[in-house]
């Protein structure tokens, strides 16, 4: 059992928790993820590590309340326990040789992008961060990004805060103005990562994307997280849990990944509604 040390609402749909898991805290690097089960009968869900405190032995997770499981997780309070918490899984984000980096985060993906930005900042790289949200009330982690970025651009889709528009807009301007990043790292919705990749392509800047497909074990056993890379014209199957979650954006078959991500759409919507009703009843 793993204790919830602290819990904080970042916005009405996104929650941050710090979980006591010393073995994971000691090892986790930016870009890696954990898998948790809320209770004995629970489903296993992957969440990317949003930070660690090795001294305290805690791991920070940030999640969006989207389905039944994240709803159950959000119903847990400080001092309570979650059943299982395993990791760190996946390969950490590569930082070697990158002196000038652009981090592009979208929505709750910013929670995963943040520790990556912090790591580059710690390593002395020049960090540009572009973070985008649907609207002002969904904004998270602005102060944290400001603290670790040499340059920060905040975007909202509806213009309710900061600059109006998609994250690709300032990215394109920077690339056109001659900014030469060693790497663009993008984390967020698949459709956003696809368009960040397409935006960068004419400028020949490498793009790393962080994939977050459906997973069960997270250790390379089930194959549910498979995705297709198109490498030299050939289709190659990779597993996000052991080969990723970071991949070369130019190789990922985003359309297939988006389709696979909707496999259990109906099931999840029903489960989400049931969990809503259940939690409403309990209150």
């Amino acid at each position: 059992m793993y204790k919830i040390l602290r819990k904080k609402e970042l916005n009405p749909t996104v929650t941050q928790m710090e979980i006591l898991a010393p073995m994971v805290a000691r090892k986790a690097r930016p870009g890696q993820f954990i898998i948790l089960r809320v209770n004995e009968e629970g489903e296993r869900i992957p969440l990317t590590v949003a930070g660690t405190n090795a001294r305290e032995g805690s791991v920070k997770i940030i999640f969006q309340i989207v389905g039944a499981t994240t709803q159950l997780l959000n119903a847990k309070q400080e001092g309570e326990f979650i059943q299982d918490f395993v990791g760190p899984l996946g390969v950490a984000t590569h930082t070697e040789g990158i002196r000038k980096v652009c981090i592009v985060g979208g929505g709750v993906g910013c929670a995963i992008a943040m520790p990556v930005a912090q790591e580059f900042h710690r390593l002395g790289a020049e960090v540009t961060s572009i973070i985008g949200f649907r609207s002002k009330d969904l904004l998270i982690l602005e102060d944290e990004f400001r603290a670790c970025s040499d340059r920060l651009v905040v975007m909202t889709d509806d213009g309710s805060y900061a600059r109006h528009g998609n994250v690709t807009l300032p990215l394109k301007e920077m690339l056109e103005a001659g900014d030469r990043f060693d790497m663009i790292i993008t984390i967020g919705p698949l459709i956003m990562m696809k368009f960040v990749t397409l935006t960068a392509k004419p400028f020949g800047v490498p793009v790393t994307v962080s994939m977050n497909p459906i997973m069960i074990d997270g250790t390379g056993m089930c194959g549910g997280c498979r995705l297709t890379l198109i490498r030299d014209g050939k289709r190659v199957t990779k597993f996000a849990c052991v080969d990723g979650p970071d991949f070369n954006g130019y190789e990922v078959d985003f359309d297939e990944a988006m389709s696979r991500g909707r496999m259990y759409f109906d099931f999840e919507r029903r489960a989400h509604e049931e969990a809503c009703n259940l939690l409403k009843g309990a209150k």
Binding site: M23, V24, K27, F85, V86, G87, P88, T219
Partner: peptide, 9 residues
Amino acid sequence: TNVVIGKTL
């Protein structure tokens, strides 16, 4: 349980 040798340790 919940210990992945090669990752956790």
